[in-house]
């Protein structure tokens, strides 16, 4: 039973990790806590749903959503956040703006799709296999595999490409990066695209797993993902990875062994305990912010 729950937790946690990575990337580049990230995740799920309605098939629909939602990420930055940076506003203005944006996105979804839960079709035919008495479904394998592959791809991109080098430079010293000729705007646009695109895929996977989507799904998953990021260490890719998996596994274990009422609370108890012992998170490093 423990192994079974571990498998369930790993599949779920890996998707949390994928959302957390996008959140973490934006924070790394802009020092911006982007609360609209969870709403973008919900938005991505619904865009996929819309295209599934046009009968293009679930996987093409998710891919189309990936591109469109990535674009929405850029749009949000251009319309609402870039002007704040230009005017050198206080950091909290950006944070509050992202909260505002997430309500606006959720509202748009409610207007188009209604506020209730909508059926989201299975992405792949049901199936799976039994292994030592543990049931592993094909959807779980898909969730785990797609999220892991994308995260490895992102890690490669950040560590071994020119754009990744520019991203790391901005993360470590934005002022110096600009003054060495890095095109800051393209790096920011690219990061928002990546964050939006990965959140959208996660949205498709989660909706496919639960076979439903609803405009407020960002509100239910958001806090878990944000805490996964902080637990692992915000701004750190391995941190987002481990944080996501931990939160996923703890959530499933708590539901199993303590009762389903503990499902959402248990992860936060662990988060608070970890932060008391290690305020920068498991993989984070202390931020020395210079003004």
């Amino acid at each position: 039973m423990f192994i079974q729950q571990l498998v369930n937790g790993l599949a779920l946690g890996m998707v949390y990790a994928l959302i957390a990575v996008g959140f973490s990337l934006v924070f790394g580049i802009l020092r911006l806590v982007n609360f609209s990230h969870a709403a973008i995740f919900a938005f991505g799920a619904h865009v996929a749903l819309f295209f599934i309605g046009l009968e293009v098939g679930p996987i093409p629909a998710i891919l189309i959503s990936m591109v469109l939602t990535g674009g929405v990420g850029i749009l949000i930055d251009k319309v609402a956040l870039a002007p704040l940076r230009k005017k050198k506003s206080i950091p909290i203005a950006g944070l509050i703006t992202t909260i505002g944006v997430s309500y606006i996105l959720q509202n748009i979804l409610t207007i188009v799709f209604g506020s209730g839960r909508v059926h989201f079709p299975a992405i792949i035919p049901p199936g799976g296999f039994d292994f030592l008495g543990t049931r592993i479904t094909s959807m779980q394998i898909l969730m785990f595999g797609v999220s892991l592959t994308l995260m490895l791809l992102l890690t490669y991109l950040v560590n071994h490409t020119k754009m990744g080098l520019a991203m790391r430079a901005m993360q470590q010293n934005p002022k110096a990066a600009r003054l060495m000729g890095i095109n800051v705007n393209s790096v920011i646009m690219f990061t928002f695209f990546l964050a939006g695109a990965t959140a959208s895929i996660a949205g498709g996977l989660i909706s496919g797993f639960y076979q439903m989507a609803y405009p407020a799904m960002g509100v239910s998953f958001g806090p878990k993902v944000f805490s996964a990021t902080v637990l692992g260490g915000i701004g750190s890719m391995p941190g987002a990875f481990v944080g996501g998996i931990l939160i996923g596994v703890i959530e499933v274990m708590a539901a199993m062994f303590l009762g389903s009422a503990y499902r959402d609370g248990a992860a936060f108890v662990v988060l608070i305990l970890v932060l008391i012992l290690r305020p920068q998170g498991l993989f984070g490093r202390k931020l020395a912010l210079k003004v």
Partner: peptide, 16 residues
């Protein structure tokens, strides 16, 4: 860029 290698620091300068 403290967490980058010396070579990478110089490569950032060539980014443009």
């Amino acid at each position: 860029f403290p967490k980058m290698r010396v070579l990478e620091n110089v490569l950032v300068g060539m980014d443009r």
